[in-house]
Amino acid sequence: MTDNEQRMARAGDYVLGLMSEEERDRAEHDMERDAAFRDAVLTAAQHFHKLDLTTAPEPVPDQLWQKVSERIASLPQMQAAETAPASPSKPRVAANARPKRFGLHSLGGRGGFAIAASLAAACAIGYFGALATVTNPQPVVVVVLDTPANTPGAIFEAFADDSVRIVPLEEFTVPAGQTMQVWTLYDKAVGPVSLGTIGAKATEVRLQGPHLPLPKPEQLYEITLEPSPGSPTGKPTGPILVKGFARQPARS
């Protein structure tokens, strides 16, 4: 057997669940270091997952979610989290373009990676867990915003973590004492909700908005001109610079 065949055979045993506990630990350890082996495992796993989708869903007992909830509530980190003060939900400009890191990721780099990997082995959870790295999610929706002249003026990408990446496509004239404010309308009953302000200069920026329901296709987004430091009423008051409706990105 060539090295390549050896690797594929081993990836196969791993994905099929045919390894002993020690073999699996060793495989998960190797996946951290051996990119070719890791890719072989992930590719095979993704294809085999199609077999998992051939089942018809079965009835879920009423009390099952209750049991999950109770176990989660009794986890040590949950009790700590629930006594901690609530974090402010005020919109703010995220300094870092990456989503906020939580849990093991807050340890960062190789340290977090190694700890995640050893936890995965301890919990026998498996390879995706062992392959912890920073999540780099896809946007939930993408929006092309048009100017009143019907030319594309900006592109938004809205993410599940309530952040929005804004790419202006043209320069906007913002008079002194005014600012550009970003809005979305996810529910007509609620009205437009501010996602934050982006100042007077059009540059690429990522806003961390308030916690809202997941962005949906056809959801309205717009930028208006407002007095600094932002609309005095909490709703749009000035002229619309650009507006557009969300689309779901096509995925293969």
Binding site: L42, A45, G103, I125, F128, G129, L131, A132, T133, T135
Partner: peptide
């Protein structure tokens, strides 16, 4: 362990199913 899920390396449903299978 949700914070260790890596979106670049497979779909969330596959990840979830893997945890259940294992």
């Amino acid at each position: 362990r949700a914070s260790t899920y890596d979106g670049a390396r497979g779909s969330a449903r596959a990840w979830l199913t893997t945890i259940v299978r294992n």
